[in-house]
Write a protein that binds this DNA or RNA. Structure first.
Lengths: 337, 337
DNA sequence: ATGAAAGCGCTAACAC
DNA sequence: GTGTTAGCGCTTTCAT
């Protein structure tokens, strides 16, 4: 039932186990007849090579790790993960690699230790870390550990680790321009504050710069990346005397939360206030009103990240290996703004 | 930088490599002093055991596969996957196993071959297949291949493979009772038709039985598990002369789609028609109106599935090993019904 | 073109 | 208690 080995195949085919190995690895100069005989035996015995033995002998790993970093509580339902992971898996599989997934966060530092152990123990060859908030110290640690890494959705401030990101600054600028073009003059952006996330910082900077360029008022309101945080932030903004006429949210989940708050408070969107998100996840179409947002090419980003990692691992890395690759984004106007 | 082996540690500690192995595996009767010396050497050399060598020697695998089955296009953004996978990973890690993830679907039959190859090649010890639509033939195949399997969200009609599901019938009954209690008398259920999914079949049966018990009208409208399908189904139902007064959807994504259709058509929910979903995903709170639904304990289901698989693999399987474990669900009334 | 020998890093036997 | 021997299943020399 379970195990046929190379030698079993060899015996069955009447050759040495070596020859079987050669057939399997498409070695040149195997006689077609031999090859055929071996293949028949392989099929007859339903032989499948033992991955561990192969890995051990070749000291070569064909597994990649896909690590998500964040607060478990916040991110466990984050819809962008599906898309990202699906693309990782598809792309890695296409290049002959398997994917293991890890969940990382400062609340569970043992996760990092486990990652290190797994890497040193040759359980995976390299990692893509998907996160908007990975602390720079962690990047330094990964680099120091020598783990081949590609950052996803987050650049390395030191420029040491390669990364794949989107044009957050440009996206925010497009959004601000859109709001201003529709007559908004008092914009508020809800984003996490000091969360180590250049992603948040860039969204903030893009927002402030664009608002300034247009000569409109710009203010910031703090909120985590969750729907609930968007809800609370909107309530705070609306609770004051001095209400903005557009509430931009750092992502779509927050946008959905803000829309709920508006609805609960009886605030008409987009008449009284415009609301926008960022990311363009599936349900941005299904909020009421539907959510104006910026589309990030998450699938493409994920494919790119995997390919950069694999190019590095397979030694065909380009010159700009540690650079940040920043993909363009597109404004998606809907009903909310 | 990269590799210290058992023998390096042994040399450093001045013992045989076996002793190091014994220390690592907490063998009885190692002198504390020796142990201490070995541990110091391990730390000094930053030694981490090679997973492949260990696996090869022990012919024991500590990786589990988490396979999602479905139309890639439909399911790639399915929010329930996050939750399920996070729970898989957390639970498996807690018991010392890693998780690889695979995406399966009939459009890519080579995925099944790859799964088989990986299993036979001892890349993973067992699999949890998450799917509402896995065809029974595939179950038979997995069973025939001898892959230790636990089905998630889908029972085996033959009762051969163990499964973890939720009480779809009971959930639908609760939902129907809820609608009827609020005066609805003409209920339509949108679910996939002949999709091999007992999950769909059970939802359908629960619906029909409950409606019949309450003596109200019940009809079926076909639609896949996506938001778009919910949208289209609602439009069809509303396009006819004979409109229902409640539209029950097979899941929340469809429910969100139905709500969008209602809004677009100017139909007031829940005044003119009630709408409900099933699953209770994050955004059920954020649709407008918020979506009445049935909460499935996905996290608990996932933990259970992993534990059943591991109990089986580790030989501490209970008597009812191949049974379906069906978890209770709870009605979550919101604004839409 | 094919076979024999060696060894990847580890653990399970048994000997000392 | 600790060391020696053997071998998990495979690929890489090197002979033939």
């Amino acid at each position: 039932m379970s195990r046929a080995t190379l030698r079993d195949v060899a015996a069955q085919a009447g050759v040495s186990h070596q020859t079987v190995s050669n057939v399997l690895n498409d070695h040149p100069s195997i006689r077609p007849a031999t090859r055929e005989r071996v293949m028949t035996a392989i099929r007859a015995l339903d032989y499948h090579p033992n991955a561990a033995a192969k890995a051990l002998r070749e000291s070569r790993v064909t597994t990649l790790c896909c690590a998500f970093y964040g607060h478990a509580a916040d991110d466990i339902t984050d819809p962008y993960r599906n898309l990202v992971q699906s693309a990782f898996i598809a792309e890695a599989n296409a290049r002959g690699y398997a994917i293991t997934t890890a969940m990382l966060g400062e609340e569970h530092p043992e996760g990092f230790e486990a990652l290190r152990t797994a890497f040193r123990g040759r359980s995976f060859a390299g990692v893509v870390v998907a996160s908007t908030t990975l602390p720079p110290e962690r990047m330094r640690t990964l680099a120091a550990w020598g783990v081949p890494t590609v950052l996803f959705d987050r650049a390395d401030p030191e420029g040491e680790l390669p990364s794949v990101t989107a044009d957050y600054v440009g996206g925010m600028a497009q959004l601000v321009t859109h709001h201003v073009a529709r007559g908004r003059r008092d914009l508020a952006l809800v984003v996490p504050g000091d969360d180590f996330g250049t992603s948040a910082v860039l969204r903030r900077e893009g927002f402030l710069a664009a608002a300034h360029a247009h000569g409109v008022r710009a203010r910031l309101e703090e909120g985590a990346w969750t729907a609930e945080a968007g809800e609370l932030a909107f309530r705070r903004l609306w609770g004051g005397e001095d209400r903005p006429d557009a509430v931009l949210c750092g992502n779509d989940r927050m946008g959905a939360g803000a829309l709920l708050a508006a609805r609960t408070l009886g605030v008409s969107v987009p008449v009284e206030v415009a609301v926008s998100g960022f990311d363009d996840f599936e349900f941005a179409r299904y909020t009421a009103p539907s959510l104006t947002t910026v589309h990030l090419p998450h699938g493409e980003m994920a494919r790119l990240a995997v390919n950069r990692l694999l190019d590095h691992l397979e030694g065909r890395a380009p010159a700009d290996e540690s650079a940040e690759v920043r993909l363009p984004v597109t404004l998606v106007p809907r009903e909310s703004a």
